[in-house]
Every structure is written in C-alpha cells, then in structure tokens.
C-alpha cells in the first residue's frame, strides 16, 4: 500500500507537470498543504484518508508553523496554508501585492486551557482575573490577591508561564484574554513548546500556564473559565470549544489563494463534511459543528 501511494504521488507529479489544480479536469492533481504545527497531525490524517476518497488527488502535507505556511501562501508556493492564527493585515497586504487574495476557512476549533498545579485549590477563573495576572498593568501578583493559599507555595507569588512570542498559542491567548491592544506583563517564563509549559506547571506549585487542550495530562489541573463575574464558568472540553461557550477557543484555519476551484474545492468541502470533521474530533480538536461520528470499528 505504501509503495502504491508513493507511486501514485510520483505519477501525479509527472502527470500534471505544472500543478493543474485550477482546472482539475481529468488529470491527477497534487495539492500542496503547509503550515501550523498544531494542525499538522490532523492535516496528515485528512490527506491519508482522502487518498481513498479520490485516487486522482494527492495531498502533500508539511508543518513548520503558522508563520511558515502563511509566508508560503504569500509567495504563492502552496495551495492551502494551515494556520492556528489569523493572517495579519500586513501579511494580507503582502499577498495582495503578489496578486494573491487569501480566503479563510475555519476547519475546526482548539480550546486553550488554563493550567495550574494539582495542589492549587482554585476552581475557576474569569477572563478579568486572567488579564490581571497576565496583562501589562494587571495588579494580580500573588495567589493571596485571589484569596488562595497553595500548599508548597509559601511566597504566594504567581509564577506566570507563557510561550515564546512567535507561537500561535501566545498570539491567540493575548488577543482573547488581554484584548487587541493588550500586552503581556514582562517577566513571565516563556517556554518553548506547549509540552514544556505543561511540564513546568506540573513541577511548580506556584505556577499558572496555558496551552492547547490536546496537551492536557493528569498531572495538571484545568480550572473552568468564565467570561466575567457572575456568568457561567465553562470547563475546557472539545464540546465547549465547538459550541463556542468556552471563552478561549481559537479557530483552526486553512487559507486558499482566491476562491478555490476544482480539486481544492472538493477537498475543502470534504474536510468540512461529516467524515472530515469526525477525523479532527478523533485527533483531540473540536469540529466546526456538532457531528455524529461512528466509533471506529
């Protein structure tokens, strides 16, 4: 099977010569798909399954980060760019400068959970409290400011765990919690990778951190988050990310160059169909709408 698919891709490469994605009439087609590391596993699963749906289309998936995918879209070297953040205005301008009009597609959602140490008694956060902890000018420096006492954290100092500043998670958390013009308070521990952030929270009683729900482990606690005092506190789950009730859920995006046609359009329609959406659910992210999926046999 592996050999066959390799052959198929090879044939597709030779067969179309130049990428015949615009017309897609009859010939075998290769779709280039690149970008976000958050989405890469899902994108690969889609590409694998799609081979059985349409044998005439091969999808080549590469990761590298949202920024990488978006620059490839700007330079016109991919058909579909994956991103866990929206394109910035400057990036859209740059693409238009190259004669490319990026079109955005929401293909799923990812809840960004707030993590604390298992010994931390906190049960809930409001967005306002999170902004007080993380935001520039926020006054919350100690757990005692929130009326909490944590075993193993005598100084009561809040150890803020964040991410490196080019991560999609960093950018989305900033926008969702601190607002468009907000900045992070300097002095947070900026971990390189979601897993490191969760690890540090696990080892540090005073810590608070954030990361995608897919990185949750039993060693850390995820309090629920409310939009404001008095409103309902929502736990981060696939379901609450999908129906939009969890306040820090980000859309997972795909960008195409202009309105897609032919094979690319068929592929995107398939991704948004029940079959495609069940695959994203299986990988631990939220689908764009409620779907009923059969348990894998």
């Amino acid at each position: 099977m592996k050999k066959l698919s390799a052959l198929l891709i090879a044939v597709a490469l030779i067969g179309c010569g130049s990428r015949s994605d615009k017309g897609g009439s009859g010939g075998r087609t290769l779709i280039q798909n690149k970008g976000s590391d958050t989405l890469v596993n899902v994108a690969q699963a889609w590409a694998e399954t799609y081979k059985e749906v349409d044998r005439n289309v091969a999808v080549a998936v590469t990761g590298g980060g949202s920024g990488t995918g978006i620059s490839a879209m700007i330079n016109g070297t991919v058909d579909i760019a994956n991103a866990s953040r929206k394109m910035k205005d400057s990036e859209i301008e740059a693409a238009r400068g190259n004669g490319i009009e990026p079109v955005e597609w929401v293909v799923g959602y990812d809840a960004i959970a707030v993590y604390v140490h298992v010994d931390n008694p906190v049960e809930s956060f409001s967005l306002e409290q999170l902004a007080g902890i993380y935001g520039d000018g926020g006054a919350t420096e100690a757990w005692s400011d929130l009326g909490l006492e944590i075993p193993g954290c005598d100084s009561s100092e809040i150890v803020r765990v964040s991410r490196q500043n080019n991560s999609g998670t960093y950018a989305y958390f900033k926008q969702a919690v601190l607002g468009k013009t907000g900045e992070y308070k300097l002095g947070s521990r900026d971990m390189h990778g979601s897993k490191d952030a969760v690890d540090l929270v696990h080892n540090t009683p005073c810590a608070i951190g954030y990361s995608g729900l897919a990185y949750a482990t039993d060693d850390v606690k995820m309090p629920c988050v409310s939009r404001g005092e008095g409103t309902e506190c929502v736990a981060p789950t696939v379901a609450t990310a999908s129906d939009g009730s969890y306040p820090i859920a980000r859309p997972l995006l795909m960008y195409t160059a202009g309105q897609p046609e032919g094979a690319i359009k068929t592929y995107l329609d398939w991704i948004l169909s029940d079959v495609g959406q069940c695959i994203i659910l299986e990988k631990g992210y939220a689908p764009v709408r409620a779907v009923s999926c059969e348990e894998p046999a």
């Binding site: 920024g67 490196q164 080019n166 300097l186 002095g187």
Partner: peptide, 29 residues
C-alpha cells in the same frame, strides 16, 4: 526560565541573548 527580567537575586528568572534568538528566529517572517 526564559523570562524578561532585570535580576536582583540568583532566584530570579532571566532570559539570555542566545536563547532569545533560538526561540524566536524560527517563525519570524
């Protein structure tokens, strides 16, 4: 700790020049 901080004691987290390049260069345009 990779934390932007002017350290006043050995127990403060800090961030180094080299680490900043390593962490940020990968995804800048």
């Amino acid at each position: 700790g990779h934390s932007i901080n002017l350290p006043t004691s050995p127990f403060d987290s800090v961030r180094a020049l080299t680490a900043t390049i390593a962490a940020e260069l990968g995804e800048t345009a």
